[in-house]
């Protein structure tokens, strides 16, 4: 029997395609003169950290694979293809090629079923990964030498209510944690979310999207909200964070609503350790932060209201 697995770290890992575009990796066809460096440098720090932690797998929860019937899990040994962002095709046309940890995918599926959830294994080899999965995976590990799993965002927070969606994410988080433990994996989790999500309704200059003189957060109100939740994360104040997230979502249309952050925090058992904010900036006016919870450093497990949710 394998050694008990563990989640070594969790990240809020936002996925604006602008970040890949600004970096000019060989996999992406469009070329830029840079842009959004503060976020890209934040990811640079994270990449080094992940390499050092030597995880077996990176699990990404993505809002851009929205599913109607249950929670879907990539379950094909390898996925490869060209992913073109339907919203920003001039910025993101990415040739992806990644291994999928199918044994862990099976285990997550089994544990989700055990939670009474509706779950599905995505077994179509022609499936095109969404840009949320790809951008987050690339920014965390551009070498793509660690297998991934992509989890879909079931649309329950939109279809039913935020509370229903959160409950689903708590279950999926628990299921993910148990699957990691049972399969002996060292796992990195990634909640592929922006924070405040109001955005410009047109690009300031479509011919020069990376013109940073035009980039700013949508409103001071949104900025204040982003700072408030980031401060709570930095303080490790999990109870207050969980309390304000619904208000945050309501006030800023935060993409957190799609579930990734709730899933990740539940999987990590709501750690009451200070998170490290590696960087914050806007992308086409949305608020984005790269935030790390390093579970190898301190207490893994929470004693507050959300303990063992």
């Amino acid at each position: 029997m394998s050694q008990k697995g563990q989640i070594v770290s969790g990240y809020i890992a936002p996925h604006p395609p602008h970040l890949v575009y600004g970096e000019n990796p060989p996999q992406n066809i469009p070329r830029s003169t840079g842009g959004w460096e503060v976020l890209r440098w934040a990811y640079d720090n994270v990449r080094e950290k992940i390499k050092a932690q030597k995880p077996d797998v990176i699990i990404v929860h993505t809002p851009h694979w929205m599913t109607m019937v249950g929670h879907h899990i990539t379950r094909v040994p390898r996925l490869k293809g060209l992913s073109v962002d339907p919203i920003f095709p001039h910025l993101f046309r990415y040739n992806f090629d990644t291994a999928i940890d199918v044994d862990l995918a099976d285990a997550i599926y089994d544990e989700a079923i055990a939670e009474g959830m509706t779950a599905k294994k995505m077994t179509n080899p022609n499936f095109r990964l969404d840009y949320g999965t790809i951008v987050t995976s690339h920014m965390l590990n551009p070498d793509w030498d660690i297998p991934i799993i992509s989890l879909s965002a079931n649309n329950s927070p939109y279809y039913f209510s935020l509370n229903v969606g959160i409950e689903e994410m708590f279950k999926l988080g628990r299921a993910t944690r148990r699957a990691i433990e049972k399969t002996g994996r060292r796992a990195v989790l990634a909640a592929s979310n922006t924070l405040s999500h109001y955005h410009f309704d047109r690009e300031p200059d479509p011919n020069l999207p990376e013109d940073m003189s035009k980039e700013h957060v949508f409103s001071h109100q949104n900025y204040l909200w982003d700072m408030r939740v980031l401060q709570l994360m930095r303080e490790g104040n999990m109870d207050e964070l969980m309390k304000v997230l619904p208000q945050f979502i309501d006030a800023t249309s935060a993409e957190v609503k799609s579930g990734g952050l709730f899933w990740m925090l539940a999987a990590m058992d709501f750690p009451n350790i200070p998170a490290k904010v590696h960087g914050y900036w806007s992308v086409i006016a949305t608020g984005n932060a790269v935030v790390e919870w390093d579970l190898t450093k301190g207490a893994n497990g929470h004693q507050g209201a959300y303990a063992h949710a």
């Binding site: 694979w65 929205m66 599913t67 109607m68 995505m122 179509n124 022609n126 499936f127 969404d130 879909s152």
Partner: peptide, 13 residues
């Protein structure tokens, strides 16, 4: 190209 629906991929390509 080849389209695979993100929800209904099991039905076919």
């Amino acid at each position: 190209g080849m389209h695979v629906d993100e929800n209904w991929y099991a039905l076919g390509d």
